[in-house]
């Protein structure tokens, strides 16, 4: 296997006036499960469309398995599997018809590559006579993945595969991706969910067309430069306002019912903060020292960039 599966150098994509991708470079090794993490509009879909030869970059060079995305688009179309962000199968065809259609247009059959999709397809096989439009979100996603895999691609591009899918299905899905990677397929996956970053071998954190950081999830967390407290107290909004004013605060971000407060090490003492909040009228204050999540790292990187 090629040690470098995807190589992107100084890639820029401009739609008329907006800059969708702003001078990014990265490499993905063969057999890697590589994640692109970022909010909507970060440029993930555009990047995937360039790599799957659907869009032509404005500037820069992209190679997939050593093939140029512009010049050799035909060969790339033979070796990559693509699952677009929106569910893009034929809703009026049954599960089986969809799968066999995609098998045929790639010049293969379901039987030939059944081994590869067995794990995934077995779960929806009982419904194979059902129309794809009538499947649940999780089943649709499994079918889409089966269709993307049926021609045994060397490399798989999954654009936000877990958006709109329930938590259990999401976890199952990532398990499947890991098994596929162990089987030797290079997988590039994008997701807006920060918690999914930890399932990838390496991730690129994307924001506004730029890659802010590329590393393994563990290294990214290790590089987090601040100390972090999780603070809880009744209403989040007044608490947040209070924490923003507190001397030494670097950032305060809401995470559900709690606020993550970052600061330079040693500048804030939890006990003092607790006292301060109590005098300001906040009740039930709970403060806990935590290690950063990818989301904390992402927020922090956003301030820097």
């Amino acid at each position: 296997m090629d040690p470098v599966a995807v190589s992107v150098k100084n890639l820029t994509l401009r739609y008329k006036t907006t800059l969708a991708i702003d001078d990014i470079s990265f490499e993905v090794a063969g057999g890697e499960l590589f994640g692109f993490i970022g909010p909507d509009g970060a440029g993930k879909t555009s990047l995937f469309r360039i790599l799957t030869t659907l869009l032509v970059p404005t500037q820069g060079a992209c190679q997939v398995e050593g093939l140029d995305v512009v010049k050799d688009y035909r060969q790339i179309r033979n070796i990559c599997g693509y699952m677009p962000g929106k569910f893009s199968l034929y809703q009026d065809l049954t599960v089986e018809e969809n799968l066999s259609f995609f098998a045929t247009i790639f010049g293969t059959t379901i039987a030939e590559n059944y081994d590869l999709i067995k794990d995934i397809y077995a779960q929806i096989e009982p419904f194979k006579k059902r129309k794809a439009g009538k499947l649940s979100g999780g089943m649709k996603q499994k079918l889409a993945l089966s269709c993307a895999l049926i021609h045994k691609p060397q490399i798989l591009f999954l654009d936000e595969p877990t958006t709109g899918v329930d938590a259990v299905s999401r976890r199952e899905f990532w398990e499947m991706l890991k098994r596929l990677r162990d089987g030797g397929i290079t997988i590039l996956v994008s997701t807006p969910y920060m918690d999914e970053a930890e399932k990838c071998d390496r991730v690129a954190l994307m924001q506004a067309g730029k890659i802010m950081k590329i590393n393994t999830p563990a290294e990214i967390i290790k590089d987090y430069p601040h100390a972090l407290l999780s603070v809880r107290a009744g209403d989040v909004y007044p608490l947040m306002k209070e924490l923003m004013k507190y001397p030494g605060t670097h950032r305060a971000d809401t995470f559900g019912q709690s606020v993550h407060l970052s600061f330079k090490k040693g500048e804030i003492q939890p006990a003092e903060l607790q006292k301060h909040l109590s005098t300001k009228g906040h009740t039930n204050v709970e403060i806990e020292e935590i290690t950063a999540s990818i989301e904390d790292c992402f927020m922090d990187l956003m301030t820097i960039n």
Binding site: R49, T52, T53, L54, R74, R77, N78, C80, Y82, P84, K86, F87, S88, L89, Y90, Q91, F102, I105, F106, G107, C147
Partner: peptide, 13 residues
């Protein structure tokens, strides 16, 4: 509109 054109284009068709 359905996005299936994307898949067809990415195929060898």
């Amino acid at each position: 509109e359905l996005g299936t054109m994307e898949l067809l284009l990415v195929s060898p068709l």
